[in-house]
């Protein structure tokens, strides 16, 4: 559970978001608007990146907030940060859309590396910032192709089939790179 809450800065934004989500769980429409104002740019960024289609991304975003409206009662501030919970809903929704639309990957492989230059962190606590830094340090210890594949899967929502086509390797090879890379990542993060 959280400890002291400062009156301003990222921790204050976080508690404000938690309060708003709890009000959304009581079907408070003004609270959903507040959640939307605080998070829509972030969640739209996720939808846009993964769908690579502005109109689709707006449809997905609309669905995301309807899901938030319906599921806010299940958000547990003791188990997840509110922004992470929201981001996961957005990413999963965008990935579902990609799967359903049969969209194939068009962005070049290098796109996965460009991510580092566009980081937006206004809503993060110091702890989350450290976690983000840490996972990047761990991904950087992997073989380059493993790191590229993991980033492309996370940020572009690519499947094994997409990755194998984009990186021009057989599916089986892609799979074994990925599995080895992910297990090394887990070892580096050392959370077990």
């Amino acid at each position: 559970m959280s400890t002291a809450e400062p009156s301003s800065g990222p921790d204050a934004a976080r508690s404000k978001l938690i309060d708003a989500l709890q009000a959304v769980a009581q079907q408070d429409r003004a609270a959903l608007r507040q959640v939307y104002d605080m998070t829509s740019a972030k969640l739209f960024g996720i939808c846009l990146r993964i769908s690579n289609d502005r109109d689709a991304a707006e449809d997905i975003l609309q669905d995301v907030y309807i899901k938030v409206w319906n599921r806010a009662g299940r958000f547990d501030a003791g188990r997840a940060s509110p922004i992470t919970w929201l981001c996961a809903i957005a990413r999963n929704s965008a990935i579902d859309w990609r799967r359903a639309s049969g969209r194939v990957a068009t962005a070049p492989e290098e796109a996965a590396f460009a991510i580092a230059d566009t980081r937006m962190r206004a809503d993060q606590t110091i702890e989350q910032d450290q976690e983000t830094t840490r996972i990047h340090q761990c991904i950087d210890t992997l073989e380059e192709r493993q790191a590229t594949a993991i980033r492309a899967a996370f940020f572009d929502g690519l499947t094994y089939a997409d990755l194998s086509a984009r990186m021009d390797v057989p599916l089986g090879t892609m799979k074994s790179w990925m599995r080895r890379g992910l297990q090394r990542l887990k070892g580096c993060l050392g959370d077990d």
Binding site: S40, A41, I46, T84, D123, I135, L185
Partner: peptide, 16 residues
């Protein structure tokens, strides 16, 4: 999901 969650913070923001 928890291990990968910190990566969410690197998605750039865009205004819908």
């Amino acid at each position: 999901e928890r291990r990968l969650a910190p990566l969410h913070h690197d998605f750039a923001e865009h205004r819908p």
